[in-house]
């Protein structure tokens, strides 16, 4: 990673997720993050990428820009796509207390992302969806 900031563009495809994970994990390890935190980042990347790959582009695959910043002890990742405007943080959270019959399948990904990250933000800038998470 050049300096404390780096970015790379990936095709928004499911099979590319391991590549994105490797890219970010490598930077996180370089930033001396605890291995448990690196796993959390992998989980966040997995969930955010799955969302973008499955829903962002009406004519897939589009692209996703991944930007990494390591500043003042905070490791920050931005995932930027130019898909349809979509705020994943606006989705209803799954009820994790209900039994098997009532339990619904959706919404778990973003829920997990929020659980393992210290901070998650979304903003729309022009044509871009920007999801930021900090560990």
């Amino acid at each position: 990673m050049a300096g404390k900031q780096d970015q790379r563009i990936f095709p928004a495809r499911i099979d590319v997720i391991p590549e994105v994970m490797d890219y970010v994990s490598h930077a996180a390890e370089k930033a001396a993050l605890h291995p448990k935190r690196v796993m959390h980042i992998q989980l966040a990347i997995d969930e955010a990428m799955a969302n973008i790959c499955n829903y962002a582009y009406q004519t897939p695959p589009g692209e996703v820009l991944v930007r990494i910043q390591d500043k003042e002890g905070h490791f920050m990742v931005e995932m930027i796509d130019e898909g349809i405007p979509f705020d994943p943080l606006n989705m209803e959270e799954p009820d994790t207390q209900v039994g098997l019959e009532e339990r619904e399948v959706g919404g778990l990904g973003i829920f997990l992302l929020r659980q393992v990250m210290q901070e998650v933000r979304y903003r729309r800038e022009g044509k871009q969806n920007i999801l930021t998470f900090v560990v």
Binding site: L43, E47, R103, V105, L108, L112
Partner: peptide, 15 residues
């Protein structure tokens, strides 16, 4: 390692 995609499989199986 497991993500929500794995959880969904387990949930579908259990149901």
């Amino acid at each position: 390692y497991i993500s929500s995609a794995g959880l969904r499989c387990i949930l579908a199986m259990a149901k």
